Computed example of a mutant assay.
Amino acid sequence: MALPKYRRVILKLSGEALAGNKGYGIDPEVVASISAQIKEIVSHNVQVAVVVGGGNIWRGVAGSTKGMDRATADYMGMLATIINSLALQDGLAKQDVDSRVQTAIEMREVAEPYIRRRAIRHLEKGRVVIFAAGTGNPYFSTDTTAALRAAEIEAEVILMAKMVNGVYDSDPMKNENARKFDRLTYIDLINRGLAVMDTTATSLCMDNCIPLVVFNLNEKGNIMKAVLGESVGTYIGGDMVG
């Protein structure tokens, strides 16, 4: 059995990924597939934390552009991430994977409050920890949440699950001649304006030397390949050495 390259990881899932082909809401089949893939890497003794977006239900930025107060819109987005996190927890339970949802906004009836040491202890016991409600503050994306939590729990990598198989110089859905990058640096992301994560999140990763692996979630087995350190998607780090 191949040994994992990473022992503690953050898996970043977009809310849209949970919607599948429906485009909105939560597709139980997609949740089941993701849960099965998480189970596979947990069985390799990899400690897994997950950050889920809420774009399949609500986007704070979209609401604010239509006149809604930005802070209010962002708090609504945080609640959407909690809905997604509970759905993922249910999917993991069906795979007999023990998990905990920790929220940055306290709601003890449905989830634990985020406590760094408790989160690390859960990971050490083999439980999957799902971080919900972003950072608990408006104006910060779930990408920033992933970078922040990765630094706090000392994760070795952030696995960015996308709908495309890596990072391109332009949108591959619109440009058939778009060029895919196998490796990039954090500075490349910022200077080229590549839409992998926002600048705040990229800067956090750069400052804390947390590499990123961007890959296609729709291809089953890619999460495992990323954990094993196989060439999948695009690797992003401080230099060109993966």
Rank of each mutant, 00 (worst) to 15 (best):
Y24W: 12
V42K: 02
S35T: 05
A178S: 10
T65D: 05
F181I: 10
Y75Q: 07
V227S: 00
L123P: 01
I158F: 05
R108I: 09
A32M: 06
V241S: 04
E176C: 06
A178P: 02
Q102S: 07
F215W: 03
D207H: 09
M68T: 04
A80G: 15
E230L: 09
S141G: 09
L123T: 04
R121V: 11
A104L: 07
I82S: 11
I26W: 04
L204H: 02
E230A: 07
M76C: 11
R192I: 07
N137E: 10
V164I: 15
A36N: 08
V213E: 01
S99R: 01
A147Q: 12
T234M: 05
D171S: 08
L3C: 05
L212A: 05
R179P: 07
G238N: 02
G233C: 05
G229M: 02
V42Q: 02
E124Y: 08
V196F: 09
A133H: 12
Y168E: 10
G242D: 08
G53N: 10
A150D: 08
V101W: 01
A87P: 11
E230R: 07
M163Y: 04
N222K: 10
V50W: 00
Y24I: 14
A17G: 09
E176A: 12
A151G: 10
S14N: 13
G53S: 11
Q102P: 05
I187T: 13
K125C: 04
T135N: 07
A195M: 13
T135H: 06
K180R: 15
T185L: 02
G238Q: 02
G242C: 12
P28E: 11
A17T: 15
A80P: 15
D143M: 11
A80W: 12
L217N: 05
H44F: 04
R7D: 06
N175Y: 13
G242P: 03
M224A: 09
V50Q: 01
T202Q: 05
D207L: 14
R179H: 13
I26T: 07
Y75A: 06
K22F: 10
W58N: 10
D207R: 14
R117Y: 09
G134E: 12
K225Y: 02
S85E: 15
D69F: 03
M68S: 04
V9M: 05
A151M: 13
V97E: 01
A161Q: 04
L92Y: 01
A32S: 13
G25C: 13
M76E: 09
A73P: 02
I115T: 11
S170R: 15
R121G: 10
A150R: 03
A87I: 11
V52G: 06
V30I: 15
K5G: 00
V51C: 12
V128T: 03
E230S: 07
L13A: 09
D171M: 08
L194A: 06
V46K: 00
K5I: 01
A17C: 09
I82P: 01
A151N: 14
W58K: 13
K174M: 13
A151S: 12
K22N: 14
D27P: 08
S35H: 03
K94H: 09
S170G: 06
R127G: 01
A226C: 06
T199H: 14
I236F: 01
L88F: 05
